[in-house]
């Protein structure tokens, strides 16, 4: 029996218990029925919105926005991060400006983006780009700055030019840090796409959830949240898979060092 309490099963058991309590609470009116529909009702709603393709449309739109913003952010931020990390002068020059821009909570940029780009996809992609860029930038910089000087001198003694040095030595050496930044930015992209869709949109999963709440389609609201959680989980898993593949060498190295 004590085996149960330390294992995964206790956790699943606990989860199951919570779901059952939820079901009972909704069914027997322990809490306001409107706010707490029984779990089964939520699951039915979930099935409906997925089967009808309704929610998938919204998810697709959100993914497109988030993906574009994320991809562009990665491109810009990694490039800048390498430059800022490698040349002290660049870092010292741009540090204050970067820190100031970074301190702006991304939602505050939304109104500015609306002014210039309206309330369409462009605005959302820009917001996501803006928010994702900073974690990637900071982590890339950190990574580049912690590249062992011996590695750089080695490349130079082999006569590598600056470009080849950055591409073949500095970037791979810094890649574990870059991956950390990319992982953080992934979560941020999702958060911001939801936010931007709640503040001004007519599509996307964020809009879907808020709209469901406003029109009091509560089971659908919960169902939407589940879909979003599932989306987040899936994206994370994909990232971890890619990370395991690409960074296998680093995992091995750090395992040895322990």
């Amino acid at each position: 029996m004590s085996r149960f309490w330390g294992s995964r099963w206790s956790g699943f058991g606990f989860l199951l218990l919570l779901v059952l309590v939820w079901e009972a609470a909704g069914r027997y009116g322990w809490v306001h029925k409107l706010f707490f529909p029984p779990a089964t009702k939520i699951l039915v709603s979930l099935f409906q919105i997925v089967a009808s393709g309704e929610v998938l449309g919204h998810v697709g739109v959100s993914l497109w926005r988030a993906g574009l913003g994320y991809g562009l952010a990665a491109l810009v931020a990694i490039t800048l991060g390498v430059l800022m990390g490698y040349w002290r002068v660049v870092y010292e020059s741009f540090e204050i400006v970067v820190e100031l821009l970074r301190a702006i909570p991304p939602p505050a940029i939304i109104p500015v983006a609306i002014v210039f780009l309206g309330i369409g996809d462009q605005m959302k992609v820009f917001i996501i780009l803006f928010s994702c860029a900073f974690p990637i930038l900071v982590n890339t910089m950190d990574g580049v700055r912690s590249v062992d000087p011996v590695l750089i001198r080695t490349a130079r003694t082999f006569g590598l030019g600056q470009g080849a040095l950055l591409w073949k030595v500095v970037l791979p050496a810094a890649s574990p840090f870059v991956m950390t930044g990319l992982r953080i930015a992934l979560a941020i992209a999702l958060i911001l796409v939801v936010i931007s869709e709640m503040v001004g949109a007519t599509s996307g999963i964020g809009y879907f959830i808020l709209d469901a709440q406003r029109s009091f389609r509560i089971p659908q609201m919960y169902a939407g949240m589940l879909v979003l959680a599932l989306l987040g989980y899936t994206l994370n898993r994909c990232f971890l898979l890619a990370d395991a593949r690409l960074m296998a060498w680093h995992k091995g190295l750090t395992a040895r060092q322990r």
């Binding site: 080695t154 003694t157 082999f158 073949k168």
Partner: peptide, 30 residues
């Protein structure tokens, strides 16, 4: 050209993300 320095911290000068073959090949690349 024609001169190479081998460092004391050889483990730090090898590239952890490349296999032995690719590390040695690095000497010829570019």
């Amino acid at each position: 050209e024609g001169l190479i320095l081998l460092f004391q911290e050889y483990n730090k000068s090898l590239m952890a993300w490349r296999s032995v073959l690719r590390n040695v090949r690095f000497g010829l690349e570019n």
